[in-house]
């Protein structure tokens, strides 16, 4: 087999796997979306109020929180993975929760990775709302609450962009979820490839393990195509909202 044949063969088989809705591939995609989606939603629920508090309130320790967020935006995922792992192992301080190697542990890790990103980006979107907009709210008779709502409304596309950036980051992240999730699938083999249904195996972690198996690359290629498609959709959506602004 020539090297071109090898690639073409891998691609064709990869598309076959995708379009035949192979259950192994499907279950991995499902875990990815569930984990990253849930983590992003929880992170947004924390990050948006937090960014408003940082923009509008003065409280003690505010500077420390900002420093924490700036640091958090660039945290190496493997470090977060290691940290959560040490917390969650049976002997660790949060061992009683008994969630190590489950999707919950993965959600927790991605939540910690993504929250600073959404907070940082939406904070700068809120700060970009001109002071004159807020003063206009007040002169037209608005309350402080109205001013906050107006800022949210003016920054809405920026905040959506922040959430999508968080989702994109979560979907493509591998280091943290590999450590705390363990890349686990059921034993056996379904649809002639891989193993049983995914438990904590995601698109990214599966690509890592399936690639290192060697031999037939159609499975990791199929996973890669799905991952890229998801990421591309998220980016296109973000672009759309940026253009709406």
């Amino acid at each position: 087999m020539s090297s071109a044949d090898f690639l073409v063969h891998g691609l064709i088989k990869a598309f076959e796997l995708i379009f035949s809705l192979n259950p192994y591939i499907l279950s991995i995609t499902g875990v990815s979306i569930k984990v990253s989606g849930t983590a992003t939603i929880l992170a947004a629920l924390t990050a948006i109020p937090l960014s408003f508090a940082l923009a509008f309130l003065n409280f003690r320790g505010k500077q420390a929180v900002i420093t924490l967020i700036n640091t958090g935006m660039g945290l190496p995922p493997v470090f977060v993975g290691l940290f959560i792992f040490v917390m969650l192992v049976p002997a660790g301080p949060l061992g009683f929760a008994d969630i190590i190697f489950t999707p919950s542990a993965m959600i927790l890790a991605q939540y910690i990775l993504v929250t600073p990103i959404i907070t940082g980006i939406s904070l700068s979107a809120i700060k970009a709302v001109p002071k004159s907009i807020i003063e206009t709210v007040y002169t037209l008779g608005g309350s402080r609450k109205d001013a906050i709502i107006a800022a949210l409304s003016e920054a809405r596309f920026g905040i959506i962009t922040a959430i999508l950036a968080g989702l994109g980051r979560a979907l493509s992240e591998v280091g943290a979820i590999l450590i705390v999730g363990g890349n686990i699938a059921e034993t056996g083999s379904i649809g002639g490839i891989g193993e049983g249904l995914s438990k904590t195996r995601t698109l990214t972690t599966a690509i890592t393990s399936e690639t290192s198996k060697g031999g037939d690359f159609s499975t990791p290629i199929a996973l890669g195509i799905i991952l890229i498609t998801l990421n591309l959709s998220v980016n296109l959506l973000a672009n759309y909202f940026q253009r709406r602004d």
């Binding site: 004159s132 003063e135 206009t136 002169t139 409304s153």
Partner: peptide, 13 residues
């Protein structure tokens, strides 16, 4: 009362 600013800010609406 009402103050019309020298350069009015417009809501993105």
């Amino acid at each position: 009362m009402s103050l019309l600013f020298q350069t009015p800010a417009i809501f993105n609406k």
